[in-house]
């Protein structure tokens, strides 16, 4: 078997090893890379900037712990952005496993940076089963769907919630999702109740939502860790997403190199020629 044939049939474990090295090296030898801002990320920043100071907003934690690397920097940055504008933040999640816990942990840690008080400046509603029913039901009454917050305190005992009945009292929604719940926030909440919103999602999910941005159903879009890094730069607080760009850069370049090598093997190793000859 010639070199090119061997290359074409390379054991996938070699590829795994190369990916592992490409992920680890940038964390040992970090590089400060210039990151450009895409129009969609700029739109997210502008949309949040345009929310009147002191308004009440939703930050939705619709992602699983598995996508923390891509999604948490977006949620964290959004909270910083809103708290900086003295907005009142209500967090909730349509993800049973980890969603409410992550909303609690992230919102409390960011609130501490800004000296915000739970119940007055921010509230975590937690999770309820059935996201379509939850989104529809909150259009009439948030309290009928979430009688208590995530830790079991009745909403009537939380000063922030005494001013909030339904979507009419919500000025903006910042949805961070790694799944299709974003589609329902658009079709139920944005389309039927007219609440403006933006979305942060994983890199793989982002291409689908360009159509929603063009239709102004999302006022902006953050795609994957790159989108999160852009948002961090825009609010002037570089954090985990900017740090992760090195590893992501190297893995992307590796995959491109592998695709080129694979094609060389395919054509020079004989398979491509045989296929062409039929």
């Amino acid at each position: 078997m010639g070199f090119w044939q061997k290359l074409e049939q390379m054991d996938r474990r070699w590829i795994y090893l190369m990916v592992a090295i490409a992920v680890i090296v940038p964390f040992i030898v970090p590089a400060d890379l210039p990151i450009s801002i895409t129009p969609e990320a700029q739109m997210v920043f502008d949309a949040v900037e345009a929310v009147p100071d002191g308004s009440t907003v939703f930050v939705v934690f619709d992602y699983y712990p598995s996508t923390i690397a891509e999604c948490e920097p977006m949620a964290r940055t959004a909270l910083r952005h809103f708290f900086r504008k003295n907005c009142k933040v209500i967090t909730l999640s349509n993800i049973p496993l980890g969603g409410p816990s992550m909303a609690e942990a992230v919102s409390r840690s960011v609130a501490e940076e800004f000296g915000k008080e739970y119940g007055v400046d921010f509230v975590n509603l937690g999770y309820k089963y059935g996201y379509v029913a939850v989104m529809t039901g909150m259009g009439t009454s948030i309290e009928s769907i979430f009688p208590t917050d995530n830790s079991g305190t009745p909403l009537s005992e939380l000063p922030l919630m005494s001013k909030v009945t339904n979507y009419k009292d919500i000025s903006f929604i910042f949805e961070v999702a790694d799944n299709s719940t974003a589609d329902y926030w658009v079709s139920i909440v944005n389309a039927q109740y007219g609440v403006p919103m933006v979305c942060g999602t994983t890199a793989v999910g982002a291409p689908k939502y360009y159509a929603f941005v063009a239709a102004r159903q999302f006022l902006g879009l953050l795609g994957g860790m790159k989108g999160a890094a852009e948002y961090e730069i825009l609010i002037g607080h570089k954090d985990d997403a900017v740090k992760g760009m090195g590893a992501q850069s190297l893995v992307h370049l590796l995959i491109i190199a592998l695709v080129i090598l694979g094609n060389l093997g395919y054509f020079l190793g004989g398979t491509g020629r045989r296929e062409k000859l039929g």
């Binding site: 190369m18 712990p65 496993l97 893995v251 592998l258 094609n263």
Partner: peptide, 26 residues
């Protein structure tokens, strides 16, 4: 649970590299 879930998701990078190597042919 959280680290295990993140680990499983991270294995996607390995699978994507392998799938791209095998499937992306001109």
């Amino acid at each position: 649970q959280s680290p295990m879930m993140a680990t499983m998701f991270a294995t996607l990078a390995f699978y994507i590299a392998s799938a791209a190597y095998r499937a992306f042919r001109a």
